[in-house]
Design a protein around this nucleic acid. Sequence first.
DNA 1: TAAAAGTACTTTGTAATTCAAAGTTAATAT
DNA 2: ATATTAACTTTGAATTACAAAGTACTTTTA
Lengths: 99, 99
Amino acid sequence: MRNFIENLNKAFESRVRLGIMSILMVNETVDFGTLKEQLQITDGNMASHLSALEKLKYIEITKQFIGKKPNTSYAASALGKKAFSDHLDALERLINKTN
Amino acid sequence: MRNFIENLNKAFESRVRLGIMSILMVNETVDFGTLKEQLQITDGNMASHLSALEKLKYIEITKQFIGKKPNTSYAASALGKKAFSDHLDALERLINKTN
DNA sequence: TAAAAGTACTTTGTAATTCAAAGTTAATAT
DNA sequence: ATATTAACTTTGAATTACAAAGTACTTTTA
């Protein structure tokens, strides 16, 4: 491998997006409010990170009503799971310097 | 743990600094040229990331001459090794969601 | 001895990123 | 009618990252 860091995915450099993806790797779907609460960031910031991940097709969005309240939930796409998993592999290789 | 991402160290969010620290965790000392070559970035960029890590006292710098050529080498400090190791632990916990 | 090259920067300027705060939309509840 | 809630979008400021160019000092080469 020529370069140690080139396989790290830019999309997952941010603490927030790292957090979002970690949560979505373990939980099938998670709604906006829960994510916001877990990560403790403002809703605007939350929305913009989610939007960045959606643009990359790393997450999928489902809008519905639960009772009378709107509820938006997020799930990692197959592509997103792959990308995240690849990123973790790259991190691991980087740290262990096995390449 | 209240928040999943708060234990991640901001200093290691950058791919480049992650790379520098990984290399310095495994190699006692590494010189400027080698780091630059491994990470494939410009020397100005390299210097500024090294300077950021030095300001945090995460790395120590030794300047010497090897033969007739100036040589600057870098080593992770005890503080830096601790900080990086804590960061990796936080990453692992985040990913495994064991907290 | 003058010019070129090497090492390790520093400076400069631009572009990208991050974030909070405020504004928006559409619905429900009072 | 007004307020509240959910989930945004927009705005603007601050920070960060980066390449490119410039610098200082030395050595090598012509």
